[in-house]
Design a protein around this nucleic acid. Structure first.
Length: 386
DNA sequence: TAAGCGTGGCC
DNA sequence: TGGCCAAGCTT
């Protein structure tokens, strides 16, 4: 620990003196510890200036960032990969070009545009946040972490990210990438999430006053490219030589994590009712909880004790329900799900029961349909009886 | 504090 | 193929 502190202080010293000295640690240095250069923001920023990723929401060098784009991307990127976010980001910019358009949009439009991206409370909070920015802040994003933190869907990470990236404010941005990079730089043995306070303190000490936004993005770019979870490219890393894990040669074991207990399998049934004019029966889930506010086909509760026996008594209408062979499997973050699918047809004159509605298959893409429901409907249509 | 909350890609 | 993982927030 004393060694870490020494390394940190030398990093701060290098920053404050604004030196561009390239000091390759000698064998003597690396044994001496405190004499070895620690990681510096300068080294990282030099790398970033050459290797930064081009992303749809990222301002080009010299350009002023658009807070709306920064905010929208940060919400979408929560626990979500860049690849998954890109098409949704473009779609949202087209449908809702600015915070005023988003605030004025119907909730259903926001939810259906978000469908497939997951963690649907993000969409609800996104909409609430847009309204708050328009109604409370006159459509202007607040610039400080504290003010941002007060908005729906914006927590510790996102408030710091927006403040630093959109407004170049000094803030400590710690996401999964930063946790990995810092854990390796200092070979932190304590597992996450217990190591979070230490990681935040070490990160804070590295943030440069002149380019906090670039520093945050550089740390995340580094974590997403070179300092990857598996087989990191230490040889190319700007921190090579000042990274404790790289010196040990076992960077990939960091960050250590406390194992999570796995969720128990839940089962349930779903009913796909196809009307003869090509519409299926759907309903809207309650606003809160799993898949809150999203569209679903009618079904049973999902539970560990579910038995696929006599479940047609739970069907939305009386019909000739056929139990389809096989199951639809889906894995949520906290439990796996196995759905038994029942299928039936009904006449064009059939009206939807209370709380449900018919939607033509052609209009299904305008629904807020989560992936598990797309799976269930696709499975039913592909295996429909007769 | 810990649990709840999605999804798709990767090896 | 299945476990791991991705720019976390809310309660």
């Amino acid at each position: 620990m004393r060694r870490d502190e020494g390394t940190l202080h030398s990093a701060i010293g290098t920053l404050s003196t604004n030196r561009m000295v390239k000091r390759r640690p000698s064998p003597v240095d690396s044994k001496a510890g405190p004499l070895t250069d620690g990681p510096t923001a300068r080294a990282l920023l030099a790398w970033y200036d050459r290797h930064r990723r081009t992303l749809p929401w990222r301002a080009k060098p010299g350009d002023i960032p658009d807070p709306y784009r920064v905010w929208l991307s940060e919400i979408m990127l929560q626990q979500t990969t860049v690849t998954a976010v890109k098409p949704y980001f473009e779609k949202f910019l087209t449908l809702f070009p600015d915070v005023f358009a988003l605030a004025a949009a119907p909730t259903e439009a926001v939810m259906s545009a978000w469908a497939g991206l997951g963690y649907y409370s993000r969409a609800r909070n996104l909409h609430a946040c847009a309204k708050a920015i328009v109604e409370v802040h006159g459509g202007i994003f607040p610039e400080t972490p504290d003010a941002l933190r007060a908005l729906p869907g914006i927590g510790e990470y996102t408030s710091a990210a927006i403040a630093s990236i959109a407004f170049n404010r000094v803030a400590t941005v710690v996401d999964g990438n930063v946790e990995r990079v810092i854990s390796r730089l200092y070979a932190i043995e304590e597992p996450l999430p217990g190591s979070k306070p230490q990681i935040k303190a070490l990160t804070t000490a590295l943030v440069p006053e002149d380019r906090p936004g670039d520093f945050a993005q550089a740390m995340m770019d580094l974590g997403a490219t070179l300092c990857s979870p598996k087989s990191p490219s230490c040889i190319l890393c700007p921190f090579s030589g000042s990274c404790a894990a790289q010196k040990r040669g076992d960077a990939e074991i960091f960050p250590r994590k406390t194992p999570k207990k796995e969720g128990q399998l839940r089962r349930g049934a779903a009913f796909v009712l196809l009307r003869e004019d090509g519409a299926i029966l759907v309903r809207t889930r309650p606003d809160k909880g799993l898949l809150g506010g999203m569209t679903e086909v009618p079904g049973t509760e999902w539970s560990a004790s579910f038995k696929a026996k006599d479940v047609t008594t739970l069907a939305p209408i009386e019909a000739e329900w056929t139990k389809l062979r096989g199951h639809v499997r889906h894995v949520f973050t906290h439990f796996p799900l196995e759905l038994t699918i029942y299928a039936a047809r009904c006449s064009k004159r059939k009206s939807a029961p209370q709380g449900a509605r018919f939607v033509s298959l052609d209009a299904l893409d305008q629904e807020a349909l989560p992936s598990v429901m797309k799976k269930a409907i696709t499975f039913a249509l592909e295996n429909f009886p007769q």
